[in-house]
């Protein structure tokens, strides 16, 4: 028996919108720790890891570890039927091949049940080691989204370089080239507008903008994004989900042949 009640149901709606472009089918894993997902895109270039901790739910019952295979487009179709202020409850019985999403309006005057068929998904689960990164950039998520969008109208790849001067996003294409430098800025009144750069050593890596743009669909979950870079590792683009957990996107770099 599984029963997870999320008062801020809009968070789940936003999570789905953030990942459904990248991943079509995925297993949602439910355990005592929380509700989680790990999935790769079809080319195995990017990986998404989601965690919604048990403590973040108003009610969290998970009698035994359960893995539920869902088609994310179908799940998004159902969650779009929930109001932004609705409370969402996810329910499943042990051994059942369906999951139920229950939507309650804030005034409790409307209650809806949507039952969705589960699917068997053969997914690879990768071990992600804890790593030290050469540079960690924290910046406003809206700014990062704007940069990725702007650069993708010029080129297909972005070179992200961190030096003591700041973080530079560069691209080039048939029509020309572009460089955007963001400097550290902690003097702003609002912490969500800060740009903070922690650099152990300079690093420069190249990534496909198509994936970066897809990651920025998570921007509505968090005012800030954290970009962790090391020359020997995939970049981590992390959006914290208030009080509950995170959504992390890993993207393998492009390497000179």
């Amino acid at each position: 028996m599984l029963e997870l009640r999320l008062v801020q149901g809009s968070l789940l709606k936003k999570v789905l919108e953030a990942i459904r472009e990248l991943v079509t089918d995925a297993n949602f894993d439910c355990s005592g720790t929380g509700f989680s997902l790990q999935a790769m895109d079809s080319s195995h270039v990017a990986l998404v890891a989601l965690l919604l901790r048990a403590e973040g739910f108003e009610h969290y019952r998970c009698d035994r570890n359960l893995s539920m295979g869902m088609n994310l487009n179908n799940m998004a179709k159902m969650l779009r039927c929930a109001g932004n202020d609705d409370i969402i409850t996810i329910k499943a019985d042990d051994g059942s091949d369906t999951v139920t999403f229950m939507f309650e309006s804030p005034k409790q005057d409307k209650i809806a049940d949507f039952e969705m068929k589960l699917m068997d998904i053969d997914s690879e689960h990768l071990g992600i080691p804890d790593s030290e990164y050469q540079a960690i950039v924290r910046m406003p998520s809206a700014e990062f989204m704007r940069i990725c969008k702007d650069l993708s109208s010029i080129g297909d790849t972005v070179i992200i370089s961190v030096t003591k001067e700041g973080v530079k996003f560069s691209t080039s294409g048939e029509i020309g080239s572009a460089n955007i430098v963001c400097r550290q800025n902690q003097t702003v009144d609002k912490p969500e507008e800060a740009t903070v750069i922690e650099m152990q050593e300079p690093v420069s890596l190249t990534f496909a903008l198509r994936y970066m743009n897809s990651f920025t669909k998570a921007s509505s979950l968090s005012d800030q994004v954290t970009i962790s870079l090391s020359s020997e590792l995939p970049v981590v683009v992390e959006y914290k989900i208030a009080e509950m957990g995170y959504i992390r996107f890993y993207l393998a770099p492009k390497i000179e042949e």
Partner: peptide, 14 residues
């Protein structure tokens, strides 16, 4: 010319 690496080249199966 750049080649696109895969995630599975960095992280191994659990």
């Amino acid at each position: 010319q750049c080649i696109q690496k895969k995630i599975t080249e960095y992280f191994s199966k659990n």
